[in-house]
């Protein structure tokens, strides 16, 4: 909590960035809307998804992207920088759980703009979509959104652990950002092998498609249960990988 406060105070110094972030969010969502207009000028449905449903996907994609930019990417980037510079030793000497500590040290407050703009798009999509949206949908949406964000965090942290062995891992960010773009469309669009990869290896499918299904009334209880089960499995696995990584970490400066 202290870290969150410091992070927020740090960011509040740079208020001009806030306006930049708003412009970025608006440009990104605007581009997404133009693409949707182009797609639906040629067809009525993309792999069974209608326009309002794809609008919901765009909204969720923006929201999850905001969560990644707010907390996941800055913290993981910091771990890699720490390992490279040898300052990771300080993390290990602190009397708190190292995995928890490295996950909540940095916050980019302004990235929350994406979460808000994305949420706006989701609400808009729900309004223009005819499907009835009840409390169950909202609950399913909240659960799957949380599960999806946690999954991305887990995979990213496991990949970051690779920095203990291969110091030059910055390109990982590029790779992940590139792959995350695929979440702009429902995973069902992609050919089978790619869909499997985007669901289980880099769980963008779960992170973006499942919440979108929840909010547009396409989600079944079974699929939600799979998502929740998968996130628990990933969290356990991440824990093991992290502890194993820390044990093998030999330090860069010493």
């Amino acid at each position: 909590m202290t870290f969150l406060r410091i992070g927020v105070m740090n960011e509040l110094q740079y208020r001009a960035n806030f306006f930049l972030q708003i412009i970025q969010s608006v440009v990104a969502v605007g581009t997404g809307l133009i693409v949707l207009a182009l797609i639906f000028s040629q067809t009525d449905a993309l792999d069974g998804w209608t326009r309002p449903q794809l609008l919901a996907v765009l909204g969720v994609f923006t929201m999850v992207g905001g969560v990644i930019g707010f907390i996941i990417e800055p913290n993981m980037g910091r771990v890699m920088a720490d390992v490279r510079q040898g300052t990771f030793d300080y993390v290990l000497t602190k009397p708190v759980d190292s995995q928890l500590l490295v996950s909540v040290r940095e916050f980019r407050l302004w990235k929350l703009t994406d979460v808000i703009v994305g949420a706006g798009v989701v609400v808009w999509a729900v309004i223009v979509d005819d499907a009835p949206t009840g409390l169950a949908n909202v609950a399913g949406f909240a659960v799957s959104l949380l599960a999806g964000s946690l999954m991305i965090y887990c995979v990213w942290l496991m990949l970051t652990t690779g920095a203990f062995w291969f110091v030059r891992m910055e390109m990982l960010q590029e790779l992940f950002t590139g792959l995350y773009r695929a979440g702009q469309y429902p995973v069902g669009v992609y050919p089978g092998w790619l869909r499997a990869g985007l669901t289980f290896l880099i769980p963008i499918g779960f992170a973006v498609t499942v919440p979108s299904e929840a909010v547009t009334g396409r989600l079944t209880i079974g699929r939600l249960a799979v998502a929740v089960g998968f996130v628990l499995f990933l969290m356990a696995l991440t824990r093991i990988v992290w502890q194993w990584g820390v044990k093998n970490y030999s330090g860069a400066s010493a």
């Binding site: 993309l46 291969f166 790779l175 792959l179 773009r181 669009v189 790619l194």
Partner: peptide, 20 residues
């Protein structure tokens, strides 16, 4: 390796457009 990571990340973009 870094260049390859970068290229694979980059290649997702056209693959998405292509698939859609």
């Amino acid at each position: 390796a870094a260049n390859y990571f970068y290229m694979i990340g980059m290649i997702t973009e056209p693959v998405i457009y292509l698939v859609v």
